[in-house]
Design a protein around this nucleic acid. Structure first.
Lengths: 186, 186
DNA sequence: GCTAAGGTGTACCGATCTGTTCATTTGGTC
DNA sequence: GACCAAATGAACAGATCGGTACACCTTAGC
């Protein structure tokens, strides 16, 4: 019970920041949308930046947990799991709450490299890369580091494409390209 | 002479918005950095949003002009020009002013689909796609629309990767992936 | 029934935001 | 030199920003 209100706040703040942006979302808007008083917010977090960091951390946990579970359900072999990543992307794109990648957006709004929020997005991106790299190595593919980065580029490109809405099937097209790269590295 | 001050303002505003973000850049900061009075700014542009639109338009013109010229200098055949796009990206990434893609950042900060700024980024992205598509078609490759989108995904993925700084040669790795896709579509 | 902690509501602070007003100054043209 | 458009500086509105102060309320455990 003790952490409940705090968790509700972070969850709601995460959704609002994701939908509305970071600078464009004021603390008063979070008070209105979360129903939690400003006093409590500043008891749990010293500043808006700390709340943003907590929201990003929650986002990473939830997204990683959901993504890993879906990949495991869709495929068992590492090679198939690499391709399943793009099917999971497709599911994500089709959610009506999809609004690009929260970490890309955060690093855009906080562009100074030594800003804590920017640094956290870099670390999260690194964790993403390591996850893909593990799969690539488990699949026994050539040039694992480069291939993992290329597959990550395709994922991020697909996210940007889905966000701009110029393609009907960005995840499918990215998957097809990923397959070509994986086949070439077999 | 008549347009000079205005052009200086838009040029300076473009650079500041690119470096510092849109919401994070106030009109007073633009006054300080451009040396142009606030009164003049609001004589030329009715609002900050209009100034942002002009800055984005200038960015598109300058980037497209520079990019097209470099591609033409580096290659003459359409197929080679498609690959040269990634060499141009590499040159861009190595500039010390590189800070990701201004249009991705703008669409992140103005996420509402019917906002004029968001719409302008979507149009600019569409123009980018059509440019790549023209090259793909001129090169006589299979499935031109899908391939053009895949190549664009690689470019945008490379931009994100370069922005996060996890790779030493994002453009080169994206180029290698592009080559594989182009070879498969020959 | 008391205490203590956590939550609430509201008013407020100084700073900053976009945008305006107005009197003054500049520079080119007849 | 007179004229006029353009640019300037600086003060100012009204709103909103992140963050604080303070008095009050709820709830649980002893």
């Amino acid at each position: 019970m003790r952490k409940n209100k705090r968790d509700e706040l972070v969850q709601q703040a995460m959704e609002t920041f994701y939908r509305n942006g970071f600078h464009a979302t004021g603390m008063d808007m979070l008070v209105a949308e979360s129903g939690i008083s400003k006093t409590s917010m500043y008891k749990h977090f010293k500043s808006k930046d700390e709340l943003i960091l907590a929201a990003l951390k929650l986002r990473e946990e939830q997204f990683h947990s959901w993504s890993a579970q879906r990949v495991a359900e869709l495929a068992s072999e590492p090679r198939d799991q690499l391709l399943a990543l793009f099917d999971v992307l497709d599911e994500w794109f089709k959610e009506d709450t999809f609004k690009s990648c929260m970490f890309i957006k955060a690093s855009s709004e906080y562009p100074e490299p030594d800003h804590p929020i920017h640094q956290q997005t870099v670390e999260q991106r690194n964790a993403m890369y390591k996850g893909v790299l593990t799969l690539v190595e488990a699949a026994g593919l050539k040039n694992p580091e480069a291939l993992a980065r290329q597959l990550l580029m395709l994922q991020e490109g697909a996210i940007i494409t889905a966000h701009f809405g110029n393609s009907k099937d960005p995840a499918g097209e990215a998957k097809q390209a990923a397959k070509a790269l994986i086949d070439a590295a077999s």
